[in-house]
Amino acid sequence: MEWKLLATVFASVFIAEMADKTQLVTMLFAADRDVSRWTVFLGAAAALVLTSAIGVAAGAVLSEVINPRIMSLLAGSGFIVIGAWVLWQAIHGGA
């Protein structure tokens, strides 16, 4: 097993998921005193596993068609565009 890659992926996904909409929705479900916390945990964990599996499968398929370097450039550019848009909205009162 590639421990460095495992740690990098874990840290990246952990940071990306921390305090996002998914975690907030999960917290709202768990805050209900009438629900099982284990059921909420298992449902949320299964959803994250499934979305991760879809991401891995899509990345594997796309890497057969698109050079991984190009994929990285596109993903990085996408994040820059999204960040610029969020900043634009914040500066111009949209956020």
Rank of each mutant, 00 (worst) to 15 (best):
M1R: 10
E2W: 11
E2Q: 13
W3Q: 06
W3T: 08
W3Y: 14
W3F: 13
L5C: 04
L6V: 13
L6H: 08
A7W: 11
V9D: 03
F10K: 05
F10W: 12
A11K: 08
A11T: 12
A11G: 06
S12W: 09
I15L: 14
I15N: 03
I15D: 05
A16I: 13
A16Q: 10
E17A: 10
M18R: 09
M18F: 15
A19H: 11
A19P: 00
D20T: 09
K21V: 15
T22N: 10
T22M: 10
T22W: 13
V25T: 11
T26L: 00
M27D: 05
M27L: 07
A30I: 06
A30Q: 01
A30H: 01
A31L: 02
A31D: 01
D32I: 04
D32G: 04
R33I: 07
R33T: 11
D34F: 03
V35T: 02
V35W: 03
S36Q: 00
S36T: 02
R37I: 07
R37H: 07
R37K: 09
W38H: 07
W38K: 09
V40G: 04
V40M: 03
F41H: 07
F41K: 06
G43C: 05
G43V: 04
A44H: 03
A44I: 02
A45Q: 09
L48H: 09
L48T: 01
L48Q: 09
V49T: 09
V49K: 02
L50C: 07
L50S: 06
T51H: 14
S52I: 03
A53W: 10
A53E: 03
A53S: 10
A53P: 02
A53R: 08
I54G: 11
G55A: 13
V56M: 08
V56A: 14
A57V: 12
A57F: 15
A57P: 02
A57G: 06
A58K: 12
A58I: 15
A58R: 11
A58Q: 12
G59A: 07
G59I: 05
A60S: 14
V61S: 08
E64F: 14
E64R: 15
E64W: 14
V65K: 12
P68C: 08
P68D: 06
R69N: 11
R69C: 04
I70L: 12
I70M: 04
I70P: 03
M71D: 00
M71H: 07
S72Y: 14
S77E: 05
G78T: 04
I80P: 01
V81L: 10
V81S: 00
I82R: 05
I82K: 00
G83D: 05
G83R: 00
A84C: 10
A84E: 02
W85L: 15
V86P: 00
V86G: 00
V86C: 05
V86L: 14
V86S: 08
W88E: 07
W88N: 11
Q89G: 10
A90E: 08
I91S: 05
H92R: 12
A95S: 14
A95I: 15
